[in-house]
């Protein structure tokens, strides 16, 4: 069993316009093991995406306190590519478009990055894996020949993120708002992809606003984030409660002093 641990994590970001550092995460604590499905819910602007990007190692986010540990080894000094090879994966909300690089080239490079230089993945094995993954996601093989995310619709991008998840087979995956911008059919398909990798050797952290996706991917633990930290943890029923009472109900119950940007009318 492997463990990903977030300890008292404080993170700040420099505003591009004003150049002022602003603290977004104010002490996040979280322990995940392989074999577990976690969900983080919370209102807009509470730091969910900051948390996922920081765990992955996006240089835009600065850790000012606390630690991120994979099997008790700190990842803080590791760059993003080393974290990826160590077993982390982030399905991004806004993956970059890269014209000129095909999906296929990119996937092969990603798999080969995890192998010794002189032992690249045999093309036959690669194509067999790719075909299987495409089939799970109801994707056609011409997706492989298209340029990376270029001109993809919202749904195609999400599928493509999950295609990479299926091919790369990380130890821990963070799925940042996988459900946003997806219709029901597409949501079912990407959920099927995620469920395919869920198992004893895989842990996942889903970031979401809504309960909707949790109908298809069942969480063992649900965490609620507000004001840059996790304020409550429970089982799947916590999500039901949030759906009924809204984030403001929980905020008032816990007596937390934060503004809920969007959810308060």
């Amino acid at each position: 069993m492997e463990t990903l641990e977030i300890k008292d994590l404080h993170v700040s970001v420099k505003d591009d316009d004003t150049q002022v550092e602003k603290e977004i995460l104010t002490g996040v604590n979280l322990v995940m093991h392989t074999g577990e499905v976690h969900a983080i819910m919370g209102p807009n602007g509470t730091g969910k995406s900051t948390l996922s990007e920081t765990i992955m190692g996006n240089p835009h986010y600065h850790v000012t306190q606390g630690d991120i540990l994979l099997n008790d080894r700190s990842l803080l000094t590791e760059p993003v590519d080393a974290r990826a090879r160590a077993g982390l994966f982030l399905a991004m909300q806004y993956p970059a478009e890269i014209k000129g690089i095909t999906n296929m080239e990119f996937l092969r490079a990603a798999l080969n990055a995890r192998r010794p230089d002189d032992q690249p993945i045999p093309i036959k094995d690669f194509l067999a894996q790719l075909d299987q993954a495409l089939e799970i996601l109801n994707m056609t093989s011409d997706m492989a020949e298209r340029y990376l995310n270029e001109g993809f619709s919202g749904g195609e991008r999400k599928r493509n993120e999950i295609l990479q998840l299926l091919m790369i087979k990380p130890t821990f995956a963070i799925l940042d708002e996988l459900d946003s911008g997806l219709d029901i059919d597409a949501l079912q398909v990407v959920s099927k992809g995620v469920n395919h990798v869920i198992g004893p050797d895989f842990g996942t952290l889903m970031i979401t606003h809504y309960k909707r996706i949790l109908k298809y991917i069942h969480p063992d633990q649900v965490h609620v984030m507000m004001g840059g930290r996790i304020v409550k943890t429970g089982d799947a029923t916590l999500a039901d409660r949030l759906e009924d009472e809204g984030y403001s109900g929980l905020r008032d119950e816990l007596g937390i002093d934060v503004d809920l940007v969007d959810s308060e009318v």
Partner: peptide, 24 residues
């Protein structure tokens, strides 16, 4: 960042972006 987040070293990621740009 996107390419590196999939495990590609900075060197390989740069090569891919440059080849993509000019190889189109």
């Amino acid at each position: 960042y996107y390419l590196m987040s999939r495990g590609l070293s900075k060197e390989v990621a740069k090569q891919l972006v440059v080849r993509g740009f000019i190889g189109i």
